[in-house]
Every structure is written in C-alpha cells, then in structure tokens.
Design a protein around this nucleic acid. Sequence first.
DNA 1: CTGAAAGCGCTTACAG
DNA 2: CTGAAAGCGCTTACAG
Lengths: 333, 333
Amino acid sequence: MARVSIKDIAEKLGVSSATVSLVLNEKDKDSRIGKEVAEKVRKAAIEMNYRPNMAARSLRTGKTKTLGLIVADISNPFFAKLARHIENIAADKGYQVMFGSSDESSIKFEKLTHLFIEKNVDGIIVVPPQDSEGSIMELVKRKVPLVLVDRGIEGLPVSSIQIDNVGASFELTNILLDRGCKRIGFMAYNINLPNIKKRYEGYEKALKMRGLPIDSNLVCSVSFENFEENVKRAIKTLIDNDIDSVVFATNRVGVQSLIALQDYVDYKKLKYVSIDNPDEYIFADIDITCIAQPVKELGERTLDILFKYIENPKYRVVEYVTLQANIVIPGKE
Amino acid sequence: MARVSIKDIAEKLGVSSATVSLVLNEKDKDSRIGKEVAEKVRKAAIEMNYRPNMAARSLRTGKTKTLGLIVADISNPFFAKLARHIENIAADKGYQVMFGSSDESSIKFEKLTHLFIEKNVDGIIVVPPQDSEGSIMELVKRKVPLVLVDRGIEGLPVSSIQIDNVGASFELTNILLDRGCKRIGFMAYNINLPNIKKRYEGYEKALKMRGLPIDSNLVCSVSFENFEENVKRAIKTLIDNDIDSVVFATNRVGVQSLIALQDYVDYKKLKYVSIDNPDEYIFADIDITCIAQPVKELGERTLDILFKYIENPKYRVVEYVTLQANIVIPGKE
DNA sequence: CTGAAAGCGCTTACAG
DNA sequence: CTGAAAGCGCTTACAG
C-alpha cells in the first residue's frame, strides 16, 4: 500500500479533501465543521496511519518547521552540547534541526547555507568561520531568519549571542597575574576568529594594565588543519620560552595542549586558566581555573531571537547579546 | 524581490520551464537541447541567484536528499563523533542529515520516526532505545530505508552494524583476570539495551570460564535519568563490596564513574578496563585498558548499506554486521 | 530540439 | 457547514 494521503481519507469518507485538511489542522472550530464529521476524519486518519507530507505542505505554506544549524564541528563537545540544547528547545516549538559542520572553512560554510536555502529551512543558526561575511549577507538579503552564536561579527546587521569574551579572558589572565605569574602563554586557534580575537584582547588588556609587555613568542595561534601537530609545536615554543602559566582560549585547545604537555616533566608545576571547562580537566590533576560558558542559555537566547524573526517577518531588530560567564574550578563545585 | 523560480528564468529567457529544468538538472545531453540555449539558461540561473526549491522537487520526485539520524544523545561524544562521520559521508553523496536525540525513551524515539516520515527523509539511521521494536517495524512496513547502528535487535528484519560487544568485554575482562583480579565490578547503564546486554554477556562468560561466580552486587545497571546520582550510588556499592577492578561498559559510564570514584582515596589502586576510550582517560592517571570503537568505520558501513537500500528500492538483503574493535591504552599510542 | 500540460499532496480563499 | 478549484515550484512523459 502506498502512502496514505488526505485524498485517500476524503474518498474513503465521502467528504472533500478540504474538510479533511481543516480537521487535521484543527481549523475546524473556525469553519464550524460538524462534530461528527470531524470525529470521523480524526478516527480514519489514525486508523489509516496517515502522516502529512511536509513537502506538499511546505510548498504550499512556505514553512518547513525545520531549522538549520552550522557549527564548526559537531564532534567538538561544546558544539555538541549547544546542538543538544538547540534541538530540545526547537522540538518544544515543533521544529527539527538539520546540522552541518564547516570545519572553519568558508567554502563549506557557503555550501551549507545554499543547501539550507534550497531546503527552505525556516531559520538558520550559525557559528561563522573566518571570511563568511559574504555568505551571511546573502542570507540577510534573502531575509532568512538568522542568528549568529558564539561569535558575532561586528558591522554586520545580524543578531548574535556570545559570552563576554574580552571580560572572560581578562578575568582569567588577572587570576594568573594576581598569583604572581609573569610569563603567561596564550594558546588559541585562529586568532582572526572574532571570538578568539576578543579573548586575545582580554589577555592583552590584563597584561597592559600591569605594565607587562606582550611577548609575541608566548602567543600561539594554531590553525585548524593538522591541529595535533601544530599544538605540539606551539607547546614546545612556550616551554622553550620559559612560561610559568598558560591561558587556553578554548576547550579543544586546552585538551590538546595538555596532551602535548604530558611530554614535559614539570608541566604540573605550571598554572593554567581556560575558557570552557571540558571534563578532561577534572582528571588532569593540574592547577586550573576555568570560565564555564552558559551553553544552555546561549541556546535559549539564540532561539528566542530566531523565533521572533520567524514568527514575525517584519521584525527587524538586531540584537548583539553578551552573556556573562562564570568562573569554575573543575572537579570542585 | 521574491525568490527566483524556474518559471522566472524561463520567462526572462523566452523558453519553457521544462527547458530550464532539463538544463539545470544536466539532463540536456539526452534531450539534446541547443548548446547556446543551455548556456544562456545556466548563465541566467547564476545571475539571478537561482536556488531550486527542494519542497517542490521532493513533492514531485519523492526524494529529499535528507537522512534522519536518531541517537541516544547527540551531546555524548561517541554519538557526536558518529554523527560527524555520517555527516561527512552523506555530504559526499549529496545528502544532509537531520538529527534527533531519544534520551533512551521509546516515546521520544517514536515521535522522531514520525517526524522523519513526515519530512520524507530518504533513509534513517537509528540507535534504538529499549522497547522501540514497534516503531522500527512501522518503518519497515513503510519500506523506509533503515539501518540500526551501535545496537542490533535480534529477530527484527533490519540491518545493523555494531562492534563485537561480547568479544570486546570478554577480552577486557580477561585482561583483568589474567592480572589476578578476583572481584571485578561491572558498571553499565540499562543492561536491557541490546549492546549493553552483550557486553554483560562477555563479562559473564569470562568469569565463568575461570570458574568464578557472578556476584550480583558487583553488577551495576544504572538508569539514564538522574545519571550522576545513580552512578554515585552504584560506585559506593562496588567500593563497599571490596572490588579490585571495574569494567566500564561505555564512555559515559566510565567518565561519570571516575568522577564519583575521586571521593575514594584508593581508587587509583584499582584496575580498570573500558569499552570506549574518551579523552578523559588520558588524564585520569589510572591503570586502564580500553576497547576503541572504530567509529568512522561504523559510520561508513552504516551508510554503505543504507545507500544500497536507497539506490535500489528492491534491494532487501538484511545484514547483521559485526566489526572487531581494538585494544588501546589511553595516552600510549 | 523544444513547449504545453499534468500532477506530486497539500492549504486556502471562494462560492454556495 | 462543506465542496470545487486554484496554485505552491518543480519534473517528466508526451506531442510535435
């Protein structure tokens, strides 16, 4: 038996397909369709195991009840958690999520945005890689509801949600300075990414306020490709330059750095701070203080704004939301 | 300007929409459309920034170029990695992935399958929770291409890919036994899940082969809800029962157990084995040996089979694929 | 070589 | 209170 359509139900019951559609979409109150007819329709739909065909509905209504999500890499626990929260909130509103990973490539990113347009997603959530302004502006021109998360891009008329990146790394760096550290390494990937850049700014600001120089040997910007290798090399540079402490700009950088650091006998004598607090730190047995990103809230605020756009196509207010993030010490609540 | 359609291009160029469609779908070779016309069409499509409307195409062709993926929880790193590999392979074939987390609930699972049917996904990949046989059989009846991953369900006519779960935990348990362990705890969640059940069987088999009794106090089956709490309690039971070693049945169980174990001074004197090797183990500074699941291969084999079904609707061969998994020691390549 | 037309399964004004 | 009909944007036999 082929798939059951509204027409099949209508024919079986001897009513019009309009009636069936109205009942199944619970619009029968308005048009006051007979209670008995409505009941008959509902019963038949269940018996015949009817499932609406969203392709047809979408073609007609222009809505898909689907959101698109582009992260850098869904297998990065930070993004996976974000995706999970977004999934939950979207599901509560009757939406499903389609995801894609950009691997920080603007080419892949653009492809994903095109696919999402073709699949008529009702809104898009995006962690923008470097050089993605063009693709983002295309979405803006097409009036696709859009919110950036984790990284806003200044100057673009697009809403974004992120933590206070400057503040977070400023605070963390100050913790090290207060404890007497003088040679503080900064480990990050691609320092050109808007959020990483801000994290660098916070580090720089803290050093400057104490009148300390920025030693460029202590600032490592590691590319996304050949990540392990590059981290290893960067860590060697830092050790060779006699650091007493390190700022990790992200979870992934932190974990990979610690793996690399295990090759050095005295790495546990250094002091560490990190933006993000992956579970790995709980076990690392090092002196580390973290900023925990409010991932759930990031997801909530993102969808709050996105749904405002989706539900009211005329709504055009652009918000640049900055959330405060909290200091935590891994393993000690 | 509203979205550009094939008709818009056709009108602008003074050709029929059939011609435009044929050219844009590269079916112009067959029908031998004039080279100049084809070129004109292609140029206009680019100029006008045309994007096909997949809802319309899907309605017509019945294909969406979208796959559905249901895992237990996308924020679990094992599933996130699996999702990532599936995303990559699917993208190479021109497919995108829609995901959902079941939280091990058969209700949520069923809802997700219904949504996927409504959205006309071309195929579904599923990590089935307990009591999901009914929903799965509905998919089978609807002839939706379907593959189970991580956990096959015996008796169902559905292809599945998983590691040799019995073998993996048998091997791991033997490692402990060979090293003189006598009181081996088994930490798992829901032992009724097909894969966990097999992991338990491997543990049981190893003990029996040495003539050792199964002490039910040492076998912990922890539910998915209130996970942290339950793990804490289970670990206390194990410690109270004087274990000398533990088998962790999954990454999540392992990590959460180790967090709980940190409350006990001597936990580093125990010996551990685990199915899965999360990064956390690298830092835990304990005696642990793992089975690393070949996640990438799991993804590949899953899609190999799924695409056979998708590409040939008459193909009905059911495969039950078991992959071998390898022993690794975290942090030591 | 190309066009006119049907039809995928819905929703929704419109008519009665 | 309900039905007939149009139309969303495609693809694809069919006709010429």
